[in-house]
Design a protein around this nucleic acid. Structure first.
Length: 374
DNA sequence: TTGGCCCCTGAATG
DNA sequence: ACATTCAGGGGCC
């Protein structure tokens, strides 16, 4: 009922058409310069800050960072931040002082989990193979990205089993996306009903198909294969029903990018392990882990943590695994393996949590002041 | 900003 | 054996 009210994708669609071409690359460079600048221990600390800020190009830095903003507005606080220990690598996430999971810990977790659950299967990349020529593989890859996106949308709010069935059922009923777009919504809903939220998902999928056809004359997402990571994220999240986790999955599974999707299992285990503060939300966890987990471990670690989260009595939600156990949890050893460092990490986690609370207080004070002023 | 809501499956509980 | 309850799953408002 509620979901049907938004039959107009136009607002979002319009908003999105503007981030194309070069902007992403520029922002990247600016960001890198900023970070390099901040990391430099040299004495030139006071001379900067204006030039970058006034850069006319970077008018709207859209989303990242939120609590740091509060600190930066206060010059004194900004100084203190500058003096605080800075990680060796540039860090733009929400928990700068939290160094876990270390690369070694990630590696150990991956290896331990792989020993328990087996080595993750890496999907063969469907790249246009020059030797293969233009054959059916190519035709298949035409819709591969869109398939992956729809598959992931269908997996939202439901288990693997039912979402696979829903996707198969949809494909069976409507072999091409054009047919899905033309079909009455009721028929599409019937095809995916077993996955849950059929009305909502149908509306969202059709909106995507319709937008693609309208904008590009072709119901395909293959064009994002060549785009930069940030551009892909902008391009996909503009669609209603496509959030960060869905995009990360498409990018990691289908496009082989170095993404680390944070689903409910990864989120829960990350908190339990102290890799993020216990009160971290999913988005902050995503941003932290995508920096801390080494790129070459992200795929394996994601797949293994999800599997582990379903099977391990210790790591499953409420201690109730949904699938049969494969054995003792290898993650237990990680926390105890480096005692001195561990204490430090725990302290850091607490410190981060405290920082967050303090920031909240500051924010509230600011808000109160604003309200009083107005 | 947070948490309630969306809805079907299948396991758990009565 | 059947009926009922409830967790799971991500995004939106």
């Amino acid at each position: 009922m509620k979901g049907t009210g938004g039959a107009q994708p136009s607002a979002r669609t319009l908003r999105a058409t503007r981030h194309n071409e070069n902007s992403g690359a520029n922002e990247e460079h600016i960001k890198e310069e900023e970070e390099a600048d901040r990391d430099a221990p040299g004495p030139l600390t006071t001379s900067r800050k204006q030039p970058v800020k006034e850069e006319p190009k970077a008018e709207t830095p859209p989303k990242p960072r939120k609590r740091q903003k509060v600190k930066k507005e206060d010059p004194v606080a900004a100084q203190m931040v500058k003096l605080a220990p800075v990680p060796p690598t540039a860090y733009t996430g929400p928990f700068p002082k939290l160094m876990r999971p270390s690369p070694e810990e990630c590696r150990a977790a991956r290896d331990g989990l792989a020993r328990l659950h087996g080595e993750p299967e890496h999907a063969k990349q469907i790249k246009p193979d020059p030797e293969a020529g233009a054959d059916s593989l190519h035709t298949h890859s035409q819709q591969q990205v869109l398939d992956s996106l729809v598959r992931t949308i269908l997996s939202q709010n439901t288990t693997d089993n039912t979402s696979h069935r829903a996707f198969a059922s949809l494909k069976g009923a409507f072999p091409t996306w054009e047919e899905v777009l033309q079909a009455p919504s009721g028929k599409v809903e019937d095809a995916i009903r077993m996955g849950g939220l059929a009305e909502i998902k149908t509306e969202r999928i059709k909106a995507i198909l319709s937008t693609l056809k309208q904008e590009r004359g072709k119901i395909s997402l293959e064009y994002i294969r060549d785009m930069e990571d940030d551009d892909i994220k902008n391009e996909l999240t503009r669609f209603k029903g496509v959030g960060p986790k869905t995009v990360a999955c498409v990018m990691m599974f289908c496009l082989a990018r170095d993404e680390f999707p944070v689903d409910t299992h990864v989120w829960r285990i990350s908190k339990n392990m102290g890799w993020v503060p216990a009160k971290a939300n999913r988005d902050d966890t995503y941003r932290h882990m995508n920096i801390r987990v080494p790129a070459d471990l992200r795929y394996d670690l994601h797949v293994l943590l999800v599997e582990h989260g379903k099977r391990c009595a210790r790591c499953a939600k409420n201690g109730k695994p949904r699938k049969e156990s494969h054995g003792d949890c290898p993650l237990v050893n990680l926390q105890g393996s480096a005692p001195a460092k561990d204490l430090l990490d725990e302290d850091i986690v607490k410190e981060e949590a405290k920082d967050m609370e303090e920031d909240d207080i500051v924010k509230q004070e600011v808000k109160v002041k604003e309200e009083v002023a107005s």
